[in-house]
Computed example of a mutant assay.
Amino acid sequence: MEFIDSRLLFSVSDHQTFESLSLEIFNYQVQNNEVYGRFVANLGIDIQSIQEHKNIPYLPIEFFKSQKIISGKSPAEAIFTSSGTSGMVQSQHLVTDVSVYVDSYRKAFQLFYGDIKEYALLALLPSYQEREGSSLIYMIDDLIGQSNQEKSGYFLYDHESLKNTMEDLQKNKIPTILIGVTYALLDFVEKHQINFPELTVMETGGMKGKRKEILRAELHKILCNGFGVNSIHSEYGMTELLSQAYSKGNGIFYCPPWMKVTVRDTNDPLSLLGHEQTGGINITDFANINSCSFIATQDLGKTYHNSSFEILGRFDNSDIRGCNLLVQS
């Protein structure tokens, strides 16, 4: 089967196009991704029977920790790795065409927020910045470079400089986004309080073992009070994906058109649930054309009729059911 033109991936404009492309990508990957092909074969699924997106099987995300998930023969241009405490096995995402990732996050940012050149982008991402292989840092590096504002940049632990920068940007009425790992944002507002209603605060990445997890509503209330904003935005992405979903408040996320979230039954991972039912999050990500576009994550959540979704937690057991369906060769 011929390689799919990556330019088609971001041309999705309606349900019919999404359905058609998802089936084309499934057939390409089942034939050109050794791991995914064996996974589907061991499920006993007749490939020809997959005629709708809802019937496509999802690869458990755990495979990124033990297998090389690649579609095609090209070597990796970049390897993105997950964060984790010492001794944990990291996921590895082998990316054979980084330009697809760049197109994905640039187009998604434009879709949800507009032209990056209009923003100052401030980053408070210590746990990501202090290690190699972060796909988030790759994205933020590029977006900071795309920004026309000289005050865009990283702040690591320099909270005083961050506070002064935000006050200066507010004074000069420059649209500003502050993206930060959750615990670092909490660290900041414990030391400094500002009142910057026009600021977009975007949290990502959780506590990273630095703090006790707290309920989203409580977290967002603390951050709203600390920054003087009405809502907290969120970015939902992961090492194993090349697309991001965004929330502009209340933890309700929306995907770009080339990404879709569905929910699976936790006891029967091949069965999908309807809207407003809690289950395991499955993600279709067309930008993963060169790895696997159909990923069963460890997150729990629910979808809604307007194509939005919510993350409610994670599986207690780190091993997703179904991993044993891959027979080692």
Results as ranks from 00 to 15, higher is better:
Met1Cys: 13
Glu2Thr: 12
Ile4Lys: 02
Arg7Leu: 05
Leu9Val: 11
Ser13Phe: 02
Asp14Gly: 00
Asp14Lys: 11
Leu21Ser: 01
Phe26Lys: 08
Asn27Phe: 12
Gln29Ala: 10
Val35Leu: 10
Ile47His: 07
Ile47Asn: 11
Ile50Gln: 00
Lys54Gly: 04
Ile56Pro: 04
Pro57Arg: 04
Leu59Ser: 05
Phe63Leu: 15
Phe64Thr: 07
Lys65Glu: 13
Gln67Glu: 15
Ser74Gln: 14
Ala78Met: 15
Gly84Leu: 11
Ser86Thr: 13
Leu94Val: 06
Asp97Lys: 10
Ser99Pro: 00
Val100Ser: 00
Val102Tyr: 06
Arg106Thr: 15
Ala108Phe: 00
Phe109Ser: 03
Phe109Trp: 15
Gln110Asn: 12
Leu111Asp: 12
Phe112Arg: 04
Phe112His: 14
Phe112Pro: 01
Leu122Ile: 10
Ser127His: 13
Gln129Met: 05
Gln129Phe: 09
Tyr138Glu: 05
Met139Asp: 07
Met139Glu: 02
Leu143Thr: 02
Ile144Pro: 02
Gly145Ile: 06
Gln146Glu: 12
Glu150Leu: 14
Lys151Arg: 15
Ser152Ala: 01
Phe155Trp: 09
Tyr157Arg: 14
Asn164Ser: 08
Asp168Thr: 15
Leu169Pro: 07
Thr176Pro: 07
Leu178Ile: 11
Thr182Asn: 11
Ala184Phe: 12
Asp187Ala: 14
Val189Tyr: 01
Phe196Arg: 08
Met202Ser: 11
Arg211His: 03
Glu213Gln: 15
Ala217Thr: 15
Leu223Ile: 07
Cys224Arg: 12
Gly226Gln: 01
Gly228Glu: 02
Val229Ser: 06
Glu235Thr: 03
Tyr236Trp: 10
Glu240Thr: 05
Ser247His: 04
Pro256Trp: 02
Met259Trp: 00
Val261Arg: 10
Val263Lys: 14
Leu273Asn: 05
His275Trp: 02
Gln277Trp: 01
Ile281Lys: 09
Thr284Asn: 02
Ile289Cys: 04
Asn290Gly: 08
Ser291Ala: 10
Phe294Gly: 08
Leu300Thr: 06
Asn306His: 13
Phe315Glu: 08
Ser318Trp: 04
Asp319Leu: 14
Ile320Asp: 03
Cys323Met: 07
Asn324Val: 03
Asn324Gln: 13
Leu325Pro: 04
